[in-house]
């Protein structure tokens, strides 16, 4: 069953069309990549999905139910969680507190013990930040801060996870660990949608990749298909024939 569907979404900022009639589908238990040059409309699309931005046209559906009109917090309660490209951590709180805020927030609509100390510890362990769990997050390097954002979104026990450039600022070994974690999450049945510039990561973890350029989808396919797609090469390298 298709978990998350974006249908014919258009977003205009003044005269500029940031997202132009885009449809994307992300399935349960699969990792869908969303790539494209800077300014292609990837983050804008995430904002539309999470409700931070109202599209000028189009629909967002979760499990076949139209959620386009729902405010952000109600979408989160239906199971959508995200991380941010420009980190949006609660900077004066510690790692543990950041995760706790999310877990405690979940209590207002679900009573499943997500807020318990043991659940929070489990998340900290999963993202591998036991050593700095009680440090304020504004003292952490970017790579670890991204992990905190991931941990925070996991604490709300989402069914759909949107990751906005999760690997930028991470070291190679951190990215490696991260890739494993993503695969794990998707095996557990989570729908993962990831925006990323690190091609190695995208190509190695994604089941499906959508390529955005100037607000339009120019290609969709498996990593193998995308790697050899002419339109994609043109968008990234600027010329039509690149010489293989």
């Amino acid at each position: 069953m298709a978990q998350l569907e974006v249908e014919d979404v258009i977003v205009r900022f003044g005269g500029h069309v940031a997202v132009d009639d885009v449809s994307v589908r992300a399935d349960a238990g699969r990792i869908t990549g969303l790539i494209g040059p800077n300014g292609a409309g990837k983050t804008t699309l995430f904002n539309v999905i999470t409700g931070l931005l109202t599209p000028n046209a189009g629909r967002v559906k979760l499990d076949d139910r139209d959620i386009t009109k729902l405010p952000p917090y109600k979408r989160a309660r239906r199971g959508i969680a995200r991380t941010f490209q420009r980190l949006e951590l609660f900077s004066v709180l510690t790692v543990r507190e950041n995760i706790a805020v999310a877990a405690e927030t979940r209590r207002s609509w679900a009573h499943d013990g997500a807020h318990k100390a043991s659940s929070i510890d489990a998340i900290i362990e999963r993202i591998g930040l036991q050593d700095c769990a009680d440090e304020r997050v504004d003292s952490l390097p970017t790579g670890q801060a991204r992990l905190v954002e991931l941990g925070r979104s996991l604490a709300s026990r989402p069914s759909v996870l949107l990751l906005d450039e999760p690997a930028s600022g991470q070291t190679e070994s951190e990215t490696q660990r991260f890739a494993d974690l993503l695969r794990e999450l998707s095996h557990e049945g989570m729908t993962v949608l990831v925006v990323e510039h690190d091609m190695q990561l995208v190509m190695s973890v994604c089941d499906t990749i959508c390529v955005l350029d100037f607000g339009r989808i120019i290609a969709t396919g498996t990593p193998e298909e995308i790697r050899t797609n002419d339109a994609v090469l043109a968008a990234y390298l600027g010329t039509k024939k690149v010489g293989a």
Partner: peptide
């Protein structure tokens, strides 16, 4: 923004 997307 982060609070809202966490369901607050």
């Amino acid at each position: 923004a982060a609070c809202a997307t966490l369901g607050m």
